[in-house]
Design a protein around this nucleic acid. Structure first.
Lengths: 199, 199
DNA sequence: GCTTTAAAGCTAGCCATATTAGCCAACGTT
DNA sequence: AACGTTGGCTAATATGGCTAGCTTTAAAGC
């Protein structure tokens, strides 16, 4: 029995590829093992189990997504940065339909790389929102709002939730434009007034 | 062997209760059968299988959610209606954490009640948006945007995706306020100008 | 170059879940 | 009272995940 020469990285990467092909929920240890030319229990030499694989896949996908979001926003500001980042977000979900759902898993505190990836992703959004003059609590609220809008749209789209013939790309751009409008005059419950209000 | 006296409705309703208790993904035919005091295969006399149960649960939950959304918006208009409906939406997800995910399943064309429930839910949103002067394509885009925002927030919240200490209720209200702002000046890509712009 | 040893692979076997087939008893109808 | 429908059952199969424990590879050390 010649060795295949796997390691954790190989296994997780192949899992990512497989998930994109067959779908996140169809990603199974059995399918992954057969894809890697190995018996199922052999995977346990590299991954603790199905849940651990899931977590590692999440770390991988989150890191990739964070990088693409960051790259998209670089050198841009305001609505420009917002649109670029939003397009990158949805683009990633389209190109990696199996990896994308994994990005929604909460980072494992025991996995520093996972935590770092999550922070990079949120940090990218934070940076864009700073361009709207949003900081502190406002930025937290706005970040949650943007994540909600983008994730909600992408996941409804993936689920086939948009039945009407109306162009989905256009709806997405409208959503992003709407968020842009909202961020320009983001409600400030405590009566805060900052630079962004004056412009 | 005395008969328990089940029927499809009993089974689906108990599934909904069980899902709320143990979580949507932990809803299993085995658990449901034992809850109903019946052997697992007996469920097949009332439901075609796990997927069919899921679909029926979706129909039930969607109908409930649609009713609550509609009720909340009745007698209100504009931002008032929007806030009431948004609160009803999130409230339902909180009170029924196991049913809520089922509402995201696309209605089964073969189940008229399911389809009708989905239409009622979307119709409720449509009605609220009419209060903003949004119709036709604009209303389709705005409906998708609102569904995305509400679903995204609720699902991120349920997944534990909001780690920071910042109050989640407040963030939600900010999101809804942001959508209100967006709908008031909803972008019109084709240069359309209607009544709502004049006010 | 030979020995040693960590680890990468294997087989076998278990549990949970879903599903189908086919049997039997309860109960409503006649 | 007989009958047929139907709601329950047991048994058996398939898939997925997991553990235990064995074997062999291949790298490290002498």
């Amino acid at each position: 029995m010649p060795r295949v020469g796997l390691n954790q990285q190989t296994v997780v990467r192949e899992a990512a590829r497989l998930a994109d092909e067959v779908g996140y929920r169809q990603l199974t240890l059995a399918a992954l093992a057969s894809r890697l030319g190995v018996a199922l229990p052999s995977l346990y030499k590299h991954v603790r189990g199905a849940d651990a694989l899931d977590q590692k896949l999440s770390a991988l996908a989150t890191a990739e997504l964070a990088t693409e979001m960051t790259t998209a926003a670089v050198g841009r500001a305001g609505g420009d940065a917002l649109r670029a980042m939003a397009d990158a977000y949805r683009g990633y979900a389209h190109r990696h339909p199996g990896r994308y759902p994994a990005t929604q898993r909460v980072p494992d505190p025991a996995d520093p790389e996972h935590v770092a990836a999550g922070e990079r992703a949120v940090g990218a959004i934070f940076a864009v929102l700073r361009g709207y003059g949003l900081t502190d609590d406002d930025a937290v609220d706005a970040t949650r709002a943007l994540r909600s809008a983008l994730h909600g749209f992408v996941s409804l789209e993936a689920a086939g939730g948009f039945g009407l013939p109306r162009d989905v790309d256009r709806s997405y751009h409208q959503l992003v434009a709407g968020m842009d409008v909202a961020f320009r005059s983001w409600p400030r419950p405590r009566g805060t007034v900052d630079q962004a209000d004056q412009q």
